[in-house]
């Protein structure tokens, strides 16, 4: 149903899309980007595969059925950023390291709580979007 050209382009695009998503995720602190946008872009990559190859083929190659678990892990990470400072006696969502203290750098990436939180958001958005794509794609194929 799809031409070989579409299939080839779709296959070739998956890896770049995921790399772009990661780039958007890690750039978010010095430049434009954040976890939500990254999650949506990555989910779009998966959607492209599902549209072109069909759900069965994609499910064989990618772990689609773990998507809800990924979303919940993301939600859990977000919650941890909210709760851990509260349990340690600070205000919920307390920023660490404190303002003014120089954080640990990996290249230009700064390791701060906001990054952890954004990774949670990324996983949540990616997982939930893929779960929806999967759920909507699933029964439709057999019925039509």
């Amino acid at each position: 149903m799809t031409s070989s050209l579409t299939r080839m382009v779709a296959r070739a695009l998956l890896a770049p899309i995921l790399v772009v998503a990661l780039a958007i995720l890690v750039k978010g602190y010095a430049n434009v980007g954040d976890g939500f946008a990254a999650g949506v872009v990555a989910a779009l990559g998966v959607l492209l595969q599902v549209v072109v190859f069909g759900r069965e083929a994609v499910a064989a190659a990618l772990p689609l059925r773990w998507a809800p678990a990924v979303a919940l892990v993301g939600l859990g990470i977000g919650f941890a950023v909210f709760a851990v400072p509260a349990l340690l006696g600070d205000a919920p969502l307390e920023h660490a390291p404190a303002p003014g203290v120089s954080p640990v750098h990996i290249g230009s990436l700064e390791l701060i709580t906001a990054v952890v939180f954004d990774v949670g958001v990324f996983l949540l958005v990616l997982g939930a979007s893929v779960a929806i794509i999967d759920a909507i794609a699933a029964p439709g194929e057999g019925e039509q």
Partner: peptide, 16 residues
């Protein structure tokens, strides 16, 4: 209709 339980979790974004 189990798919519904996935969607509202987006809203956990709220804390940003």
């Amino acid at each position: 209709e189990s798919e519904y339980d996935q969607q509202d979790e987006f809203d956990e974004e709220i804390v940003r």
